[in-house]
Design a protein around this nucleic acid. Structure first.
Length: 515
RNA sequence: GGCGCUAUCGUCUAGGGGUUAGGACGGAAGAUUCUCAAUCUUCAAACACGGGUUCGAUUCCCGUUAGCGCUACCA
């Protein structure tokens, strides 16, 4: 039997180890991002490991969801493993611990069935009788085929301490007496999470375990396993948890699709903005920078900047589609999750703001290329060249990519949706003024070159001639051409729309009034 | 219940024995532009509570409270 490596890799090797028992939620995504950032900042490797030892709860749909989310994040990783393919290693590690007498067989049937959920449960350390079973008796019953779980024999000597140093939470010490005899192997021979995780971390020579703070207490068990198996434990760094506005941990069932990464993708977040947002939750560059590119984040990232208190993802709790099932375990099918129906108010305002910032920071061609598929998917036919002309007119007016559908709809349709003719009435004016303006505008525009400056001059001149203010001139035209009051700048809009469409829409507006 | 972690504006955070406790989002008001945005300016908004230590604590220590996590043959 070849002895596994004794020490972690000297060069950074981090791992992201999701268990495929649900979709990829924002908390997991942040853990992945922090791992990735740490590795990239320090020239290390990122390992993706599917922790799929829980055959009962695993699902292919969950695996797909995780890969969907990670693919969108677009960060990539260097190595990939599946824990279920490494069970031999886990068993060998368990065997090694057992040989040393640091683990024992527990023949107690699983789930005593006692009302454990009654809340008032005392301190459980081990099943009475199991730990003291003689080796001979233990061997005999095992040989007889009696099923057993393998438990770690936690040292019980008073004063025995388990300790480790956490890069975020500092020195951690706990009395071994407070650690229960946790299971290493289940009675069906499958490794538990604790065993599999440690065996793999050691074998993969993971140098830094960066994970959620919900594992902080478990780490004492892990240290015990590492040491029992003859490995030097890696450096630990626990991340403060991401919680919902109500302070509870993120859950699909309780909080709806807002906690799923794909929801952000489908709502029109830029993955770089989403990453930026997540980085600011529980970590700070400490220089008041907020809008940061991936390169800047990579350069600034360090474990020292990580906080110790939970961070709230400030979304609006939305009524969840009642579907009875435990959605934390069940994947939201695309059908039950009509993603697009998400109102922007449901997202954390900071995420929205950052997304808008990143959108504004994108080169026009780039943004345009990202907008185009969304427009096409909505059933509009616009070519890339026209989209590039539309993009600058709306980029400061959208927070989410899919806002393009409401911000730029007027460029996509042949026929404007109907609107209230009263909208045509300018400030401090009346319908007669609107009509007068539109009629004159049509005449003037017919003889004007459709470029910003000529349009500007012609229309202002017309306003003066009619004795109305510029604003009173522009408003009726804007509504006639856009179908609403709030729209992109007028002259640019007219230019992109073209003379023919504009004249036709104005014509239509005047007739609309008359009827 | 046991063990552990945490506590600065509504939210994300900076700071640290003596500060006007800083920034950002969001909110309010104003400026600006052809509307809406964007941009700019201004305003409101915080050290959980109680004890110590100290000349002086929001900062250090202890306690309380609250929140969270672990307490499975889940991860």
């Amino acid at each position: 039997m070849t002895d596994p490596l004794l020490s972690p890799s000297p060069t950074p090797r981090v791992r992201f180890a999701p268990s495929p028992t649900g979709f990829l939620h924002v908390g997991s995504a942040r853990t992945f991002i922090f791992n990735w950032l740490y590795a990239r900042h320090n020239g290390g490797a990122v390992i993706l490991r599917l922790d799929d030892t829980d055959v009962e709860r695993n699902s292919q749909a969950s695996v797909d969801s995780i890969f969907d989310g990670l693919k969108w994040l677009n960060l990539g990783w260097d190595e990939e493993y599946k824990q279920s393919e490494r069970i031999d290693l886990h068993r060998r590690t368990a065997g090694k611990i057992f040989e040393k007498g640091l683990a024992y067989r527990d023949f107690t049937p699983a789930h005593t069935g006692d009302s454990e959920k009654s809340g008032a449960q005392g301190t459980w350390l081990f099943n009475p009788g199991a730990r003291e079973l003689s080796a001979a008796e233990s061997d005999r019953r095992a040989a007889a085929g009696e099923p057993f779980a393998l438990r770690f024999r936690v040292p019980r000597e008073p004063g025995q301490l388990v300790r480790f140093s956490d890069a975020v939470y500092g020195e951690q010490v706990k009395a071994a007496a407070d650690v229960e005899d946790f299971a290493l192997l289940r009675s069906d021979g499958m490794p538990t999470y604790h065993l599999a995780s440690c065996a793999d971390d050691a074998d993969l020579r993971i140098s830094h375990i960066i994970r959620g703070q919900d594992h902080l207490s478990n780490t004492f068990k892990h240290v015990l396993i590492f040491e029992a198996a003859g490995f030097r434990p890696p450096q630990f760094a626990h991340l403060p948890l991401l919680v919902a506005p109500d302070g509870t941990k993120l859950s699909k069932r309780r909080h709806g699709p807002v906690v799923s990464v794909t929801t952000y993708r489908d709502a029109g977040f830029l993955s770089e903005a989403f990453i930026n947002f997540l980085c600011l939750l529980g970590w700070s560059p400490k220089n008041d920078r907020e809008n940061m590119s991936l390169q800047e984040l990579t350069g600034a990232f360090s474990l020292e900047g990580i906080n110790r208190s939970n961070a709230v993802v400030n979304f609006k709790e939305s009524p969840v589609v009642p579907d009875e099932v435990d959605s934390d375990v069940v994947i939201p099918s695309e059908a039950t999750d009509p993603g697009a129906a998400y109102a922007e108010e449901t997202f954390d305002p900071k995420a929205l703001w950052l997304n808008a910032e990143h959108i504004r920071g994108l080169p026009v061609e780039d943004l345009s290329a990202r907008l185009l598929p969304i427009v096409h998917a909505a059933g509009f036919s616009v070519d890339a060249a026209k989209m590039v002309r539309i993009t600058p007119l709306i980029r400061e007016r959208i927070k989410l990519l899919r806002d393009v559908l409401t911000a730029a709809d007027l460029f996509f349709v042949d026929q404007l949706p109907s609107y209230d003719p009263a909208e045509l009435i300018p400030q401090k004016g009346d319908m007669a003024m609107a009509l007068k303006v539109l009629t004159r505008a049509r005449e003037v525009l017919a003889g004007t070159q459709f470029k910003h400056d000529p349009l500007d001059q012609a229309l202002r001149a017309a306003a003066q001639e009619l004795g109305v203010k510029a604003g009173q001139m522009f408003q009726p035209i804007r509504v006639a051409v856009c179908g609403r009051k709030n729209a992109p700048p007028l002259f640019e809009t007219l230019e992109v729309l073209g003379k023919e469409t504009v004249l036709q829409r104005i014509e239509q507006a005047t007739r609309l009034k008359i009827t």
